[in-house]
């Protein structure tokens, strides 16, 4: 009798992870993976990659065009633009991932409770989700930031607050569909506690679509952060942000158009990368999708 390892070893390479292989064979998705990986590496190793401090002001050398010393030129305060773009990746990804993660956890918990809990609790929670969903994100963000002041914490709070209802709605729907399944009914008959049913049995079966949704929301959040920073309501200066680079560039667009180009380019690439990656993940993780399914 052959071992599992032996069985695995006997599978030809081209038959392993067939959907992943199919996904990566799509050049658009492969480029998206490279882009996203590139942004993560840039963000993680920013202090080692950036040639200068992103906050070092040198007003005598402001608005210098791209050169050997400053590949992307300098901004309106003489700061190295390449370094600010590199650190801007860190800001964008940090805010996007933290806020989406917080929203995801809150949405998951409330969605499970709404779907599995009593009807009256479901009613209250759904009303809350729908109320929050009805608020336009940007308007809500502007109102909160006006009251609390701009800053990374406020930004994360605003994004998490406006994002979690859609995640909760998704998890609730999945939970409702599964709560009367045979294996859940069996657990209940065996006197399993609700937390055990929720987190051990239901959660693993409902979390897949949430992960896809979360990954597809990351570019949206990056754009929201950049948009609010462009309006001067995002991260506090001097923290580098692609949105604030764009805004500073816009005010000097006629004399230093490269600021807008170099500030906007990573935003475009990150958005494209995460969007295409999200779509690829959806195809890969969704069993209903035919693409990549083994013959």
């Amino acid at each position: 009798m052959s071992s599992v390892a032996e069985l695995g070893a006997s599978i030809p390479d081209r038959q392993r992870f067939p959907r992943l292989r199919a996904m990566m064979s799509d050049p658009v998705i492969a480029i998206a993976v490279l882009l996203v990986a590139g942004f993560f590496i840039t963000a993680a190793f920013a202090p080692w990659i950036a040639p200068y401090s992103p906050t070092k002001i040198d007003v005598l050398n402001k608005l210098q065009p791209p050169s050997a010393a400053h590949w992307f030129g300098t901004d309106h305060l003489g700061r190295d633009l390449l370094s600010r773009v590199i650190y801007g990746a860190r800001t964008a990804l940090m805010i996007a991932i933290v806020s989406v993660a917080i929203a995801g956890v809150i949405g998951m918990l409330l969605g499970l409770i709404a779907g599995y809990g009593p009807r009256w609790l479901d009613g209250i929670l759904v009303l809350t989700f729908d109320s929050l969903n009805s608020l336009p994100m940007i308007m809500f963000a502007l109102a909160i930031i006006t009251v609390m002041g701009a800053g990374t914490g406020t930004l994360i709070l605003v994004i998490a607050m406006t994002s979690f209802p859609s995640y909760a709605r998704l998890i609730r729907a999945q939970t409702l569909a599964l709560k009367n399944s045979d294996y859940i009914v069996a657990e209940r008959l065996l006197d399993a506690s609700p937390p055990r049913i929720l987190f051990v049995h239901l959660l693993p079966n409902v979390i897949g679509p949430l992960i896809i949704l979360l990954s597809m929301d990351i570019p949206v959040v990056i754009m929201v952060e950049a948009g609010l920073s462009f309006l001067g309501l995002g991260v506090r200066p001097p923290t580098p942000s692609w949105g604030s680079i764009l805004y500073d560039g816009y005010t000097s667009i006629r004399s230093a158009p490269y600021m807008v180009i170099f500030g906007g380019l990573p935003l475009v690439l990150a958005t494209l990368g995460f969007t295409f990656l999200g779509e690829g993940l959806r195809d890969y993780l969704d069993p209903r999708m035919k693409v990549g399914r083994p013959a």
């Binding site: 305060l77 006006t146 001067g232 805004y247």
Partner: peptide, 30 residues
């Protein structure tokens, strides 16, 4: 106030005061 010119001045002040040993947190407001 949260426009480019004023926040630029605030950042120059922040950098200047840092050299004097004073930490400045910029609070841009609309």
């Amino acid at each position: 106030m949260n426009d480019s010119s004023r926040t630029a001045i605030a950042q120059i002040m922040q950098a200047s005061l840092e050299q004097a040993g004073i930490t400045v947190e910029i609070q841009p407001l609309d």
